[in-house]
Design a binder for these strands. Structure first.
Lengths: 212, 212
DNA sequence: GTCTATAAAGTGATAGAC
DNA sequence: GTCTATCACTTTATAGAC
């Protein structure tokens, strides 16, 4: 087979690209298998259903990203008891960018998939993420809450979802936005530059005092 | 026919509710016409295609909201030469809430539709909005830029798109989020409460000093 | 303008040969 | 494990009677 990966991997590779670009329900199994150059029936042989394929695509990223993010946060907390919000968010940059070594365009693909998962969700994806990676999420939320103790938990819930929205929308539109920024302002940004632009925005929004 | 509206309106009313709840491609014409209690073929008779129905649904709101928002901003600028970002964003609250008088749940429906439109967009909706309402958008961008003159234009471009992402994602997920907030924190938020929560977050992020 | 009936094309999934 | 062929179903859209 030489440089041809196995069928299961070929399906996952083609599927994640198409899911990220077009969304889950806009991507048919026929499109996936034709891009992957495998037989239509092999999806059901290897994954059982489209739903389970979607979960497998997400799991392949989450299984790498979540532990890496957790360990970065633990090490930040042990070295700096009073880390700022900016520090906490910046901690995620390395685990995110490392996904580019896992696969080409890995960072952007992952963030786009996450966004699609939260928006399109017929329920099963939110459930899948929170039951399989709930501990990591809880740890992250706690780290953020500790570094912004003036924000009540209910308000923090909203602000973290505002933050999630900012990130996933920006990443989903990253191509178009960098293109416009280059044409209109002569700026040339890669994905890391965009991430570094968004962090101060997020930190300011999360930490802004609650108005009475 | 008594209290039964005409077919065209019944279709629009049923469609906007379903589109906002489930997204455009997850909502079939069969579902719309059965909820509207009209014949399946009437959609094509009155609107020509599903795509044009989607545009008609959005236009019914945009034609009301955009001029109202514009005139609020003009009157703010003439009464207060140094309006804050918070003032600018808050200016949109009244035109948004007035949509509730247009139709029941109008505000939430409109914002959710806008979110779906930007996320799901197969291109035709972004195009439709910018070509039909571009002047209003330009005016709004200028008002924001004037009230945060310390932000360079290129940076403002990014921050306004971060802002768009926050709003669009939040509104598309608003139902799920208010449900979780009710379950986990005993909070009961309507759409106005969510809007008033997000404005300080947006203002802080847009105005935060640029780091070197 | 509204209806029935149906065309034409797509979908996920599966049985069964190899 | 991979293939062909096909099932059972859904989708948008339309022709033609009323």
């Amino acid at each position: 087979m030489a440089n041809r990966s196995d069928t299961k991997t070929r399906i996952l590779d083609a599927a994640e690209k198409l899911f990220a670009e077009r969304g889950f329900s806009e991507t048919s199994l026929r499109l996936i298998t034709s891009k992957a150059e495998v037989n239509l029936a092999s999806v059901n042989y290897h994954f059982g259903s489209k739903k389970e394929l979607i979960r497998a695509v997400l799991a392949r990223y989450l299984d790498v990203f979540m532990p890496a993010a957790s360990s970065e946060i633990v090490s930040l907390q042990s070295s700096d008891k009073d880390a700022s919000l900016n520090d906490i968010f910046s901690t995620l940059v390395k685990p995110l960018l490392d996904l580019n070594q896992l696969r080409s365009e890995g960072t952007r693909t992952f963030l786009q998939l996450l966004g699609r998962g939260y928006i399109e969700s017929q329920g099963h994806l939110r459930w899948f993420i929170t039951t399989h990676y709930g501990d990591h999420l809880t740890q992250f939320v706690k780290a953020v809450a500790d570094s912004a103790p003036h924000i009540p938990p209910a308000e923090m819930f909203w602000r973290l979802h505002f933050t999630l929205g900012t990130v996933v929308f920006t990443m989903a539109s990253a191509d178009a936005l960098t293109e416009i920024a280059a044409a209109d302002f002569g700026e040339h940004n890669d994905i890391e530059a965009v991430i570094r632009k968004v962090i101060p925005y997020l930190s300011a929004g999360v930490a802004v005092p609650v108005t009475a």
